[in-house]
Nucleic acid binder design. Sequence first.
DNA 1: AAAGTTCTTGACCAAACGGTCAGGAAACCG
DNA 2: CGGTTTCCTGACCGTTTGGTCAAGAACTTT
Lengths: 208, 208
Amino acid sequence: MTATKPLTRIQQKNRAAILDAALDVFSAHGYRGATVDQIALQAGLSKPNLLYYFPSKDAIHVALLTGLLSTWLAPLEQLDPDGEPVEEILKYVDLKLTMAETYPRESRLFANEIVQGAPRIHDNLTGPLRRLVDEKCAVIAGWIARGLIAPVDPHHLIFSIWATTQHYADFDVQVRAVLGDAAENRFAIAREHLRMLFSRLLTPGAAG
Amino acid sequence: MTATKPLTRIQQKNRAAILDAALDVFSAHGYRGATVDQIALQAGLSKPNLLYYFPSKDAIHVALLTGLLSTWLAPLEQLDPDGEPVEEILKYVDLKLTMAETYPRESRLFANEIVQGAPRIHDNLTGPLRRLVDEKCAVIAGWIARGLIAPVDPHHLIFSIWATTQHYADFDVQVRAVLGDAAENRFAIAREHLRMLFSRLLTPGAAG
DNA sequence: AAAGTTCTTGACCAAACGGTCAGGAAACCG
DNA sequence: CGGTTTCCTGACCGTTTGGTCAAGAACTTT
């Protein structure tokens, strides 16, 4: 039983500043590419002071990942088995794209971690994540069985949604580079594009 | 005029070994996460000997990226303006997925680089890459104008193709973790899934 | 075989890094 | 106010890292 004392006003402020700075630095340079000095500087703290709040660089990283993982998976949890199937999935796509637009740092943090083999959150992937995905895939499979959406592999459907939406956060530099001046309204156009992409895939009755 | 002497037999062998080892290490840990010792060890060379062939860690990285970029873009170049539009694009999707399956290290190398802001290949993105993409987007726009495929934003279509196919290389750990035992034939199922996804999007006449 | 070139290495270096520690400053509390 | 806890810092430490260098080994060429 670890009796966690309530945090001081100063502790709250500084821990939050550290985590925000760490999110900036880790998402931009990866774990190894980030330095404690850099995080401390951005948080407006000295390095020893930062290490007064977190015991190590690794601890900051873990705190970030675990703290943000539930936030990151929340949209999928909202997928409502009793909703209108196609619209439910399209709403999920829309929400994920909004997340990519609003929280690109979080997206890149996980992207960095997973591309490099997810050494620190692998258990979370095979555990909670997999359970959640399986649960929602069962829902989708149910919809397919009842003919409410076109038959697709539920897991790979979810992969496609993750890939297409997070692409606009993780590969933002590339997207902007390729679009040039037309990059400004990229999220609006992406929204329309992805809605069409997945609505055509899922709407039953189309050519199969 | 840099008169590049022809490479020795030993030079050829060792440079190749270094680049292959570097691809392994850089793709797995990112630029900053990779160490010269690690690359040297994997290449079967001592560190000073490795630095005899490449002047610096950075030079190895740049040589890798620039050397592989053309390979990586080759599939898009093959998109044939005179081919059957839907089938041409589906062929491109298929080829990109095959690349993700066959060359996951290369995919991850670029993923690492771009997620972290593409500091070393940014000029290549706004230059050659953008030109190639624009050229092929014009082809796609032409197909749309002639009603040969459904109207979609060509740029974002390409983004969707990149995202969905490279996902299976870049986020392989996650894909495997979520699929569990069913991960074995993930590429076969992905192939089917993506073919359906993009064929439904592009086949004209469907609900718009 | 001799000379010249290419290849390889152990030893070394300066900088950067994650982390420690003693002790002072500030905030809190009776 | 005085005592106690919390907060903060300069100086420091051991390790890792990218990179150098002088000198020897191996290969080529004549």
